[in-house]
Amino acid sequence: MFSAKAKSEVLREVVDVISTLVDEAKLNLNKDGLSVKAVDPAHVAMLDLSVGKDAFEEYSADDQEMGVDMDKFKEVLKLAKAGDIISMDYDEEKNRLIMSVGNITRRMALVDTAGMSDPKAPNLNLPVKVTVRAEELRQGIRASESVSDHVALICSPDGFEMTSEGDTDSVNLKLPKDLLESLDCKETVRSLFPLDYFSNMVKAASSAGSITMFLGTDYPVKMEFTISDEKGEVHYLLAPRIESE
């Protein structure tokens, strides 16, 4: 059993976070809320999302899995304005999700979850933790996008840096320690990431005030932020590019 009502912007955030990595996802539902674990087809990035039931206007669910095609979900969201309430009910008999916005009802066939196992997150030992205002990162990405396909994230005890080197131009965002929300860093670390992935992840954090990143050298980055008025929690992992020696 699953039945819930939520504001359209809350669902939009959830969908953005998921569709950054995958087209289809398995939602794990239980009485306390929903969660998603997914890895993108190239195995470069991983998502661990949980949204508590408080994020919804109404929520009740038994333990169950639901396979959702994110594009279809988005089509429904497009019909709604901010503040509209969307209701969702699970039709067990036909294995469909019934969504209504205003006077429209969409009966959405679900995806078979048999092949969708929960990925196991690597147990990483990341020495550096830095929290940056999301707006600063978005600004840095906007500046980088015209210059290169990748971005280096660098952290030292003095501050955080983001640089992009193109063939001719380069972009550098430098945030000294006092402009950071917090910094826990004893050694300088540096890893290079594909900009498209990084950018989409940061953009998915549209309502988050700040983003916390865990970093190492030539190591994946772990990003953490909240959505849905801090009632949802997102963890992303992104694998680095390894620069040739």
């Binding site: 991983m46 690597p122 147990n123 396909d149 190591y219 994946p220 694998a239 590019r241 620069e243």
Partner: peptide, 16 residues
């Protein structure tokens, strides 16, 4: 080649 250069996958870091 430029576009692909050295992207690792998460699996490379599994089970540390």
């Amino acid at each position: 080649e430029e576009k692909m250069g050295g992207q690792s996958i998460l699996h490379d870091f599994q089970a540390e």
